[in-house]
């Protein structure tokens, strides 16, 4: 039980924290000269512009096959980047998890790789890779791949950690070899959760692929950029609509799959 005095001081702490956050917000607004009031006023105007210009007409539908082609290309690239990354992350996850690690060097290495790859945003990876690989689909693929390895390695490590030492110890005690233990105690227990993370990453990557595509000039991002720069706003609207529908469809599908495997 908290004593009354402690509860009171906790209350003051919270109030103090709130004041600090408020001050910080105000200070930041002042520093970047962000005019909150003006931006609020701009919202109706922007909304009106959207309604007027982003209106999909029958004409626009002629672009549909082209857009779909690019969209499918983007989806396939995201899926490929995710699955290959998952394969690599699987091994990194096993050598990095506290349950299954065998030596500190490998564990540190895979944790390091995961941390570097994850803490640099995908867009930054795209820009960095752009310098060495140029504007092509390989760059986009690599950017997604690197980010995904970072995220999935971390997620897989935690999933394996969660399986815990118990079945691992029990099988070791029967005289099982390391690889027998991994394949029969750790993987069966961790696989559904790992697949779930992989599906999540496929969803995320399809979203990111659009942004990355704008930078690398490939896939649906490129199509979006092209229509945008040629002031074909109706087509821009169509592309956006199709991306949204795709993302929703993928999300629904992966939720279905999750229900079955978990």
């Amino acid at each position: 039980m908290l004593t009354d005095q402690k509860r009171l001081s906790r209350k003051w702490q919270h109030l103090f924290l709130l004041i600090i956050v408020c001050c910080f917000t105000w200070l930041s607004i002042e520093m970047v000269q962000f005019d909150f009031y003006q931006s609020l006023l701009a919202i109706p105007t922007a909304g009106l512009w959207m309604v007027e210009n982003l209106w999909i007409t029958a004409d626009t539908w002629r672009e549909f096959p082209d857009i779909m082609l690019k969209l499918v290309e983007t989806i396939l690239m995201s899926v490929a980047a995710t699955t290959i990354a998952a394969f690599i992350s699987f091994f990194l996850g096993i050598s990095g998890s506290t349950t299954t690690r065998r030596n500190g060097l490998m564990a540190g290495l895979s944790r390091g790789i995961a941390s570097v790859a994850r803490n640099i945003p995908v867009v930054a990876w795209a820009l960095i890779l752009l310098l060495s690989f140029g504007q092509n689909s390989l760059t986009g693929f690599l950017a997604l791949f690197v980010g995904t390895v970072g995220f999935l390695t971390r997620a897989f490590m935690e999933t394996i950690d969660e399986v815990g030492l118990k079945p691992f110890e029990a099988l070791t005690a029967t005289g099982a070899t390391y690889f027998q233990v991994i394949s029969k105690a750790v993987i069966p227990q961790a696989l559904p959760q790992m697949l779930s993370w992989m599906l999540f990453m496929i969803e995320t990557n399809i979203r990111s692929a659009t942004l990355v595509g704008i930078l690398t000039g490939t896939g649906i991002g490129y199509t979006f950029d092209l229509y945008y720069k040629t002031l074909n706003y109706e087509a821009v609207a169509l592309v956006t609509l199709l991306i949204i529908l795709t993302v929703i469809a993928i999300e629904l599908t992966s939720n279905r799959i999750r229900k079955v495997i978990l």
Partner: peptide
């Protein structure tokens, strides 16, 4: 180890199998 069995407080089975 194959000659020595072990039984645990928390059973230590693989729950999903």
């Amino acid at each position: 180890r194959a000659n020595i069995g072990m039984i645990f407080q928390h059973y230590n089975l693989v729950p999903r199998l």
